[in-house]
């Protein structure tokens, strides 16, 4: 594995600093000194996230990769407001996240367990819209559009368990898309599907992102997937997690499985992220948080 010279890659850390000033306009999601320690009485204390600072601009598609056990799921659940932070804050559209925020949709890894098996595909997609208080006609239209986007119009009246794994994850994506979130979180959504389906779903995410202008935070353990999908790749360290590097992916906006993956630049980026992950696995982590913050 060829390790490319680090200076080739612009780190976005320095640029992340003025994010607080630009808040509410271009920044969709902002993590400020996020910290999470699991401290259940009677169990050993686990420091999952030591310090994370990064922000995502509106309309960006950012991937988060890290070695296994890097606290990726903890991070995602914190951002989704499903987990209380120990320190720091997550800011979505200028509001501090204290519970599951409005304007955020999550696609979980376990597609088979995130869809309601007692509902049809249509009902699954429609339920969050009911909660939004949309009238029947609007709901119907949005559901139809979302199902069309993911290519599942035919399966609308079927139950999720009647569909293949890849199709089930499409349903979960349709549900998230129909909800029209300002940020879409995806937690290793394709970890459990076969390689071909995975490639299709990756392209689906790219096309939905472009098409709908939604901000996407995509968590994965797959380096290739992260580089292929992302505009930026945030590399996490081993637990206790800090930011290893924020890698800019300067690949052409128009991507496809064959040509993009055979670009020399793709290989370089991939190699770079790979070497970062290898370092992370060895327990190598930047000590100081961000140059911008005061440090600990």
């Amino acid at each position: 594995m060829a390790i490319t010279k680090a200076p080739l890659f612009t780190s976005r850390r320095a640029e992340a600093e003025p994010s607080a000033a630009a808040e509410g306009t271009s920044v969709a999601l902002d993590l400020r000194g996020v910290q999470k320690t699991y401290d259940t009485p009677g169990r050993p204390q686990v420091e999952a996230i030591r310090h994370l600072d990064f922000s995502i601009r509106r309309g960006e598609l950012v991937c988060v990769v890290g070695p296994s056990g890097a606290g990726k799921t903890t991070l995602l659940r914190s951002i989704a407001g499903l987990l209380d932070l120990t320190g720091g804050e997550v800011v979505l559209d200028g509001n501090v996240v204290t519970g599951p925020p409005e304007g955020m949709a999550v696609v979980f890894q376990e597609y088979g367990r995130s869809l309601f098996p007692w509902m049809t595909v249509r009902q699954n997609v429609e339920l969050p819209l009911k909660e939004k208080g949309l009238d029947k006609a609007t709901r119907r239209e949005k559901v139809n559009r979302a199902l069309e986007e993911v290519g599942l119009t035919e399966a609308a009246e079927q139950h999720p368990w009647q569909l293949s794994g890849g199709m089930q994850q499409r349903v979960a994506i349709a549900r998230a898309v129909a909800y029209e979130p300002s940020v879409l979180l995806m937690d290793e959504p394709f970890a459990a599907v076969d390689a071909q389906t995975r490639a299709e779903l990756e392209d689906l995410v790219r096309s939905l992102w472009k098409h709908l202008g939604v901000t996407v935070l995509f968590v994965t353990h797959d380096i290739d997937e992260a580089v292929y999908l992302g505009e930026r790749v945030i590399v996490l360290s081993n637990r206790p997690t800090v930011l290893m590097e924020d890698v800019d992916v300067d690949l052409p906006a128009e991507r496809d499985q064959l040509t993009t993956r055979s670009l020399a630049r793709f290989g370089e980026l991939r190699g770079h992220v790979y070497s970062l992950i290898q370092r992370a696995k060895r327990g190598d982590r930047p000590d100081a948080p961000l140059p911008a913050s005061k440090g600990e």
Partner: peptide, 29 residues
């Protein structure tokens, strides 16, 4: 109840009533 289903219901901010009727009761049936 499957925790992922509960998380899904929470993340879509389903009201307690909707959670009960559309998630908890069918899941328990």
């Amino acid at each position: 109840l499957e925790p992922t289903l509960t998380d899904t219901a929470k993340s879509y901010r389903l009201s307690p009533w909707r959670r009960l009727v559309f998630v908890v009761l069918p899941g328990t049936s």
